[in-house]
Computed example of a mutant assay.
Amino acid sequence: MSPWWLSNFIHSHVTSTWPLLIYAVTWVAVLTLTVAVASFSPEVAFVSAISPSSSFSQKCPHTSVRLPLDVPVCFPAQLFGKSRIDLIVPPIFAALIVAASACVVRAVALWEHD
């Protein structure tokens, strides 16, 4: 294998696939940004609802837990604990978020030519 052949091969293949590589990197970046926004926005809303300055956060009795609902309600702490469904729901939620984000990015049709 001579250096001339290798440099000619690299030059002809890299320059022809460069737009495709930029297209793929852009697609991945937009999809990643969409997934991040879709998955972190509920967390931001929840954290802001339970912050001390929020009207939702009020004191409950010692053995109760206050949930950020529209009506101030305290629930007994015994109602909250880990269950088997806690292992199933997060992966399903993550898959739904990724699929929905891909649909949103596809619907925006950034790369469609008129």
Score class of each variant (00 low, 15 high):
104 V>T: 09
52 P>I: 06
34 T>M: 11
51 S>N: 13
105 V>T: 10
111 W>L: 10
112 E>Y: 09
42 P>H: 07
8 N>L: 11
40 F>M: 13
69 L>K: 10
3 P>Q: 13
63 T>Y: 09
12 S>H: 10
14 V>Q: 01
49 A>F: 04
89 V>H: 00
105 V>M: 02
66 R>F: 05
23 Y>E: 09
109 A>K: 10
114 D>R: 15
17 T>I: 08
66 R>A: 08
34 T>I: 04
105 V>H: 02
48 S>P: 00
35 V>W: 03
108 V>P: 00
97 I>E: 02
39 S>A: 14
106 R>G: 01
105 V>S: 02
30 V>Q: 03
84 R>G: 14
105 V>C: 05
38 A>D: 04
99 A>L: 15
80 F>K: 05
21 L>Y: 10
83 S>M: 09
14 V>N: 00
13 H>M: 07
96 L>C: 14
103 C>K: 07
105 V>D: 01
2 S>W: 06
13 H>R: 14
41 S>N: 01
85 I>S: 10
35 V>I: 15
31 L>S: 03
90 P>E: 10
39 S>V: 11
89 V>R: 01
28 V>G: 02
80 F>S: 06
5 W>C: 04
65 V>N: 02
85 I>L: 14
98 V>L: 11
76 P>I: 04
104 V>D: 01
33 L>W: 09
46 F>K: 06
25 V>C: 07
25 V>P: 00
14 V>F: 05
2 S>N: 15
65 V>Y: 03
83 S>Q: 12
1 M>P: 03
10 I>P: 01
65 V>M: 07
114 D>P: 09
79 L>F: 11
31 L>E: 02
76 P>H: 08
60 C>M: 11
41 S>R: 00
49 A>K: 06
45 A>P: 01
66 R>L: 09
89 V>D: 00
32 T>A: 14
86 D>E: 06
31 L>W: 04
30 V>Y: 03
48 S>K: 09
89 V>P: 01
63 T>L: 11
113 H>E: 15
96 L>G: 11
97 I>V: 15
93 F>T: 13
33 L>M: 13
8 N>W: 02
18 W>N: 04
48 S>H: 06
99 A>D: 06
61 P>L: 08
4 W>E: 15
52 P>F: 06
47 V>W: 15
1 M>G: 13
17 T>R: 00
24 A>H: 09
30 V>K: 05
46 F>C: 01
